[in-house]
C-alpha cells in the first residue's frame, strides 16, 4: 500500500470531520464559526459521546445494546429522585444513580451469557423494562429537583470560571475517552473484547474468559449510559422519564460512523468520538441555517449510510 493511501486510511475520518465543519462554516451563518459555537458543539456531544464509549466496547465484541436510551432516562430520574425525595447531596445522588443504572447492564450481561439469548433481544427487553421502571418511579411525570452544582456540570461556563476553558462535563467526557481508549488498546480486557468480536471460537480456544468479559462489557455500557443520564439531568435540571427516546440509535450511529463493524472485531474509541462530533456538527449547522428538523434527519441518515459505504469500499480496496 502506498503512503498517501495509508495516511488517508488512518486520518480519513478526521478529514471527513474537518470537511463537514468547513462546509458549514461556508454555508451556515457567521455565528457557526465562532469559538463559542465550538464550545457549544462540545457540550452537545457529551451525552451521545459518553454513551458511545460503552457502546464501542459492545459493538467491537460483536454485540449490540439497545437499552442505552432508556438507561439514560432511568438514571436521570434516579438522580432527581435521590436529590428531591431522599435528600442526598449531589455527589452521592449521582453515584447512586450510576450504580443503579450499571446494575441493569450487569443483569443484561448475565442473561446474554447464561441464558444464551442474543444481545439484541435481551437489551430490547431491557429497553422497555427500564423505560417503564423510570416512568413508574417518577409517577409518569417529571421529578423536580433542587438546584445544585450538578446542574452546572454541562452548562456553559460563567465568566468567573473561564479559566476552565471547557465546562466540567466536557472535561469528564475527554478524560473518560482517553482512559478507555487506553483500556481498549493496552489491557487484557480490551484485547479480549476485540478477540471475542473478531472470532469468539478462537477466543475460547485461547482460554479467554468469554462469558466474564461479556458481562463486564454490558455492565460498562450501562455504566456509561448512566453517566450520560447524569449529564442529561444536569442539562434538563429535572428527572424526565420520557427523555432520550431512541438515543441508542444516535449512539450506535456515532460508533458505526467511527469505523466500527456491527459484526465485531473492529472499532476505536477515537473513531466513535469523531462519529459523535460529526453528528452534532450536522445537527448544529442545520439548526443555525434555520433548516427544519426533517431536513436534519434526512442529512444525518444520508451521512450514516455514506460513511459506512465508504468504509466498505476502503476495505475492499485494501
Amino acid at each position: 500500500m502506498n503512503v498517501p493511501l495509508k495516511w488517508l486510511n488512518r486520518f480519513g475520518l478526521l478529514l471527513a470531520l474537518l470537511a463537514i465543519y468547513l462546509l458549514f462554516i461556508f454555508i451556515a451563518p457567521s455565528s457557526f464559526s465562532t469559538m463559542r459555537n465550538l464550545e457549544t458543539i462540545a457540550r452537545q456531544t457529551v451525552i451521545v459521546g459518553i454513551a458511545a464509549i460503552g457502546m464501542t466496547f459492545v459493538i467491537i465484541s460483536g454485540g449490540i445494546d439497545l437499552s442505552v436510551g432508556s438507561i439514560v432516562a432511568f438514571s436521570s430520574v434516579f438522580v432527581a429522585y435521590f436529590l428531591s425525595k431522599t435528600h442526598f447531596s449531589p455527589l452521592p445522588s449521582a453515584v447512586c444513580a450510576v450504580a443503579v443504572g450499571s446494575a441493569i447492564g450487569l443483569i443484561s450481561g448475565f442473561l446474554i451469557t447464561r441464558l444464551k439469548v442474543v444481545p439484541f433481544i435481551v437489551t430490547l427487553g431491557m429497553m422497555l423494562l427500564c423505560r417503564g421502571a423510570a416512568k413508574g418511579i417518577a409517577g409518569e411525570q417529571k421529578i423536580n429537583a433542587p438546584y445544585t452544582w450538578l446542574n452546572e456540570v454541562l452548562a456553559s461556563l460563567p465568566p468567573e470560571r473561564s479559566w476552565m476553558i471547557l465546562s466540567p462535563g466536557v472535561w469528564i467526557f475527554i478524560f473518560l475517552t482517553l482512559i478507555f481508549a487506553f483500556i481498549l488498546r493496552y489491557t487484557v480486557f480490551g484485547r479480549a473484547t476485540v478477540a471475542i468480536g473478531s472470532n469468539e471460537q478462537t477466543a475460547r480456544l485461547c482460554g479467554i474468559a468469554v462469558e466474564r468479559t461479556k458481562v463486564i462489557i454490558y455492565t460498562l455500557s450501562a455504566l456509561f449510559a448512566s453517566i450520560a443520564g447524569v449529564m442529561q439531568f444536569s442539562r434538563l435540571t429535572v428527572g424526565d422519564p420520557t427523555v432520550a427516546v431512541g438515543l441508542e440509535l444516535d449512539v450506535i450511529a456515532a460508533v458505526v460512523i467511527g469505523g466500527a463493524s456491527l459484526s465485531g472485531g473492529q472499532g476505536t474509541i477515537f473513531g466513535s468520538l469523531i462519529g459523535a462530533l460529526i453528528m452534532t456538527i450536522i445537527r448544529s449547522g442545520c439548526t443555525q441555517m434555520g433548516l427544519e428538523n426533517w431536513i436534519q434527519e434526512i442529512v444525518t441518515g444520508a451521512i450514516i449510510i455514506t460513511a459506512v459505504a465508504l468504509d466498505r469500499l476502503r476495505h475492499r480496496k485494501s
Binding site: 480490551g190 484485547r191 478477540a195 473478531s198
Partner: peptide, 24 residues
C-alpha cells in the same frame, strides 16, 4: 481471528504475560 494481526493471534493465549496489572 482472521481480522486481527499476526501478533495478536500468536499471543492471544498468554496476554497476561505482556505487562503487569492487566496491561498489554
Amino acid at each position: 481471528a482472521l481480522s486481527m494481526t499476526i501478533a495478536e493471534n500468536v499471543t492471544m493465549s498468554k496476554l497476561r504475560s505482556f505487562g503487569r496489572f492487566g496491561l498489554v
